[in-house]
Design a protein around this nucleic acid. Sequence first.
DNA 1: ATTTTTTATTTGGTTAACCAAATTTTTAAA
DNA 2: TTTAAAAATTTGGTTAACCAAATAAAAAAT
Lengths: 196, 196
Amino acid sequence: MNNTTLAKELDLNPATVLEMVRKLAVKKLVQILSDKSIRLTEKGEKKALLIIRKHRLWEVFLTEKLQYNWNEVHVLAEQLEHIESVDLVDRLDAFLKFPTVDPHGDPIPDKNGNLKIKTTISLDKALIKKNYTIVNLADTNDIFLQYLGELKIKPGIKLKLLNRNEYDATVSVIISKKTLQLSNKVAKNILLELVN
Amino acid sequence: MNNTTLAKELDLNPATVLEMVRKLAVKKLVQILSDKSIRLTEKGEKKALLIIRKHRLWEVFLTEKLQYNWNEVHVLAEQLEHIESVDLVDRLDAFLKFPTVDPHGDPIPDKNGNLKIKTTISLDKALIKKNYTIVNLADTNDIFLQYLGELKIKPGIKLKLLNRNEYDATVSVIISKKTLQLSNKVAKNILLELVN
DNA sequence: ATTTTTTATTTGGTTAACCAAATTTTTAAA
DNA sequence: TTTAAAAATTTGGTTAACCAAATAAAAAAT
């Protein structure tokens, strides 16, 4: 990761980013390598993971308890993740019955900042006639998520891949007993786990 | 309310408070009267009430859903009240089944910022042999709240006043079939509502 | 190996939120 | 009504988070 890219991503001036990165370096949260690229230290990574934990737990709360749509929760969770209290997060975790993934299917780090990543295949590369569970979505684009919402496609849902069109790589899948056609673009962004 | 008092309450320099108050005046949230005292405008009052609403709803959430003790929730709720989303608050309200009071017994304003205040009597002035419900506690001191916690005294609990000692105004009350002696100081801070 | 382009860094600002100390105004007391 | 005390205000700072423009350094292209 380099300064300019970061600046663009955060929509900040590179001078600002440089200043910030230096402060983070003083706090030993990031390391500035000899080629001037930036990376998290172990300490920084852990802190980041604990913030991700908060974020994702609040997302679960918002969807499961407050009936939010999974594509609406990100902005709110960005606010909630700033709440400073380890204890609160752990209680929230317990209240939500220790969920392992957020509403998008992304794994939730545990209280030590460890997260277990599932090995997934995207639907466009999945095997014909096999059963899968949707575990995640690779694109967070709103229109995409909304489209999936209409089709009732979300993490946790099971599907079977029927066939893949030779010409345009459109896939046919069975989801809750109905057959659906999904474009290759969509299929690429649906991540699956094989059902044993 | 005057500047110096406010400054002490907020633990800020009077110069800072003056600056802030002026900014709030520009936003028409406070009014600076001719004698230089400060008061909320209607707009300011409504905004304040909506923040109180958030604060108290989060307090209910923390105690009822995350099993926090009612004397631990204030600090956390102060953080949570900064979350900016009217919709979120309304959903939280619904999720909590539209509570009317917070864990301390203070009323929760509705979504328009209206709150209905109960007329209460403090236990030290209550009538002998009458049945009351505890609706609120006038002191937020930690030791006081902890003491009450040990005695299982909290808003919602019913009690009957048996008698008041002539000498030191200690009161005898029955709470869940047990007789308790409470000092005048304590009695003064327990607010009651007559049970019809 | 130069030149061009991209990236990093420095420099000199701004604004918001704060403060301490000095000064002015108001209020209360003598 | 003059004086003492308290409160309000002004003045001149600081720090943190930002920026734009200039310069330096590194990488890529010729």
